[in-house]
């Protein structure tokens, strides 16, 4: 059975501790587990660390890699910074949007893939680049990018 946000937070707290210092790490664990930070998780982190729900939400909304909306099983982050743009990331983005049938910032209706653009991924020597979940892909063309995304189940 899938874990509830409360369970995920409680288990993570055994590793990170329960002090206010742990707020970000707890949120990272939640985000890893669910792909986003649900409200119940914010409440759970708030309870466990003694910080207010607004404080926890403030932390969650500060960081780009923590999402407040539910997302797909796979997260594709295409770099949109200058070096990648110069090497054709806009074309890659158009191709991916067409392939997935969604605009950047959205999730496919079947919940399979979320497509996002992101600040520099630090792969500028191999532009254009994207991060699929935790795996980097670089030297993309519209075709190779679509092929990678098609392979995501």
């Amino acid at each position: 059975m899938a874990k509830t946000p409360e369970q995920v937070v409680a288990e993570a707290a055994d590793r990170t501790g329960r002090s206010p210092d742990s707020v970000l790490r707890l949120l990272q664990e939640v985000n890893r587990e669910f792909g986003y930070v649900p409200h119940e998780a914010i409440r759970a982190v708030s309870r466990i660390t003694g910080k207010s729900a607004a404080h926890v939400r403030g932390v969650a909304t500060f960081y780009s890699f923590l999402s407040s909306k539910p997302r797909g099983r796979h997260i594709v982050r295409l770099c949109s910074t200058v070096s990648c743009e110069m090497k054709g990331s806009s074309e890659v983005l158009k191709a991916l949007e067409k392939e997935l049938g969604i605009c950047a910032g959205n999730t496919t209706p079947d919940g399979r893939v979320t497509l996002e653009t992101t600040s520099c991924l630090g792969l500028c020597d191999k532009s254009p680049a994207m991060l699929v979940n935790d795996v980097p892909y670089s030297g993309l063309t519209p075709e190779t990018a679509c092929e990678i995304v098609r392979g995501l189940r």
């Binding site: 200058v82 600040s119 630090g122």
Partner: peptide, 9 residues
Amino acid sequence: GEPGTFKDR
């Protein structure tokens, strides 16, 4: 995180 930087990677 500076755009165009990857030396530390």
